[in-house]
Design a protein around this nucleic acid. Structure first.
Lengths: 351, 351
DNA sequence: CTGAAAGCGCTAACAC
DNA sequence: GTGTTAGCGCTTTCAG
């Protein structure tokens, strides 16, 4: 293993090979206009000295860093980290490095120093992988339009003039509700995520609209707000049962809350799915091993991330080649329903 | 919001303020030797132009990037992402940026291009946050000793001459076993992680040694190997029950497998904890909401990460100040036992 | 095919 | 206090 911490410079290589730095540059950039002998000689020296070109110096002169800024939040949760994993893989594949920042809170709004930090590192583009919560998109309107680097946003309401990649959470809500109806449930409650989250609102609206179309009129008592945590799910289901005694099934806005819903049911002697159908959202790996296995709406953050990286690189490269600027467009991916026992009152296990 | 993609240069600021670039440099670096009036004038221009110094150019000249390379793997799992979250926070606090790489597999061994990539970006140090699996530490021996940048390793067997920050997995195994014995269980099986993982071996050895000290002699049939996934946990427990009919409790090497162990028990009409005590490892947030709530060994990856960042920065700064090189030392953190119902045969719920 | 000169954006060392 | 010169490691002209 020949590794030195960037000690050898192009100058030293040039001197050792008896050529100019120019020629060395040509060799490492695989330019055609070097004689085979010179090329070989230079390459030998490079090998011997363990020389590696400095990405920094290159970025400085070429005004191109092949680095993407990634802003995330809540990495300890499953969603954001799956997304980040998708980003690292796609970026690696495309030959881009990643500069990572994590917001301390989802609703952090003071993002100027963050942008400045990324820009000062000459990132070629930014992937904003923070879910839309509360006012945490307000700064979008203040963003100067002539910002020279592209930004791709994840997990937010699509808007004109920006590029958004997102999952169709509304559709997810509709899928969950349609499935419960089909299973013969008629008193379908909802435990939502915190409603300052865009995703939570979307899922809830999907459920509500589905109810409406099926001829049920929505009432406030059909619904309780949770905060995504298992702990909040336990509290929410207690409250929901109390305020809506006819309840025969629940669409829960994420799997972690669904987990505690089923635990509380078990404690109270309520049978799932016979007395209570449960559908979650996310399809985390453990969901198939809950008791009973959980029916849930699966969202593929990995694909979202991959598309976001591909899109931003497309924009970067086109901009760099002086092509027509690419029009911002939004990409919305459909989630899918994974059917397991927790919602199957009338059929055998699907899966 | 005044943001431009690094357009204004120090030169332009200098020209606009009618001073030399030097003076501007002094202002942005908060050097004392600038007159108040000049400073103010320069600062006004900086404000007006939205000027931000280029971190790249600075790194190049000062040979110091204030950037850490982070190598991780398996981000979609809870452990690595918790660790990464700890790293981002600690780095942010210390004013360091993060260049992130994710290995495609835990046992990836071809790490030279990865190192080269980080070094070419002039990172000041590297945090190797990949768990020790199989041969994936072999390259350590080949690493040149004169590598100029420090590396801190996470989650591996402490070694001479390198800095390791880790949790005491062996102790975790002992804690789990001691607790089960204390609860009156006498036939304590183990479902391990894959044994090419250092952590899995440590946890298993803790269990085994504990058994031995309590006067039980170890037999192969007391143990089955899993692969961390819930799916493997379900298979493993079936096998364990078959080959060890007297089994009255299990120490399971992570919470995800423990989850499916309890599901299988429930299906078979085996009562937890009356007929079968279960202790997990990790304390993932959902564990408190399993049915029954899971007793588990908690490891604090967040603190591990924080210590790792602090340690590497200490090494970097000392090296940069030409101080005595800091001796590599290992830090091992004790895990703690979180007691819940799944293992409480003789007492009331703790926690 | 190869080299010399200039410069990316910034700072260190030295003048005045 | 402030400006000048040099140069971090590299690539882009432009000569030859």
């Amino acid at each position: 293993m020949n590794l030195r911490a960037g000690r050898a410079t192009i100058k030293e290589v040039a001197a050792a090979a008896g050529v100019s730095t120019q020629t060395v540059s040509r060799v490492i950039n695989e330019r055609p206009d070097v004689s085979p002998e010179t090329r070989q000689r230079v390459q030998d020296v490079i090998e011997k000295l363990g020389y590696r070109p400095s990405a920094l110096a290159r970025s400085l002169i070429s005004q191109r860093s092949y680095t993407l800024g990634v802003v995330t939040a809540g990495l300890k949760y499953i969603g954001p980290s799956r997304t980040l994993s998708g980003i690292t893989n796609a970026a690696e594949e495309a030959g881009y490095s990643l500069l990572l920042k994590e917001l301390p809170r989802f609703d952090a709004n003071n993002i100027v120093p963050l942008f400045e930090g990324l820009i000062s590192h000459h990132v070629d583009g930014i992937i904003w992988a923070v879910p839309e919560v509360g006012e945490n998109r307000n700064w979008l309107n203040e963003l100067p339009l002539d910002l020279e680097i592209p930004i791709v946003y994840l997990t937010m309401e699509p808007q004109e003039n920006i590029t958004v990649v997102s999952v169709d959470n509304y559709l997810g809500g509709r899928l969950a509700l349609a499935h419960l109806l089909e299973q013969g449930y008629r008193h379908i409650g909802h435990i939502s995520g915190p409603l300052d989250w865009w995703e939570a609102r979307q899922r809830m609206t999907g459920w509500k609209d589905g109810l409406g179309e099926a001829g049920f009129d929505y009432q406030d008592k059909y619904w309780v707000e949770g905060n995504w945590s298992s702990a909040s799910g336990a509290l929410a289901v207690e409250k929901l049962i109390a305020q809506y005694p006819d309840l025969d099934s629940i669409f829960v806005a994420n799997d972690q809350m669904a987990l505690s819903v089923m635990q509380v049911a078990c404690q109270k002697g309520i049978r799932v799915p016979e007395d209570l159908g449960v559908v979650g959202f996310d399809n985390m790996p453990e969901s198939a091993y809950f008791w009973p296995p959980l029916t849930t709406v699966q969202q593929d953050q990995y694909t979202v991330a991959k598309l976001a990286v591909e899109e931003i690189i497309k924009i970067i490269e086109s901009g760099h080649q002086g092509l027509e600027p690419i029009e911002p467009k939004s990409i919305v991916l459909p989630p899918t329903l994974v059917i397991r026992q927790s919602s199957l009152r009338h059929k055998e296990v699907g899966q």
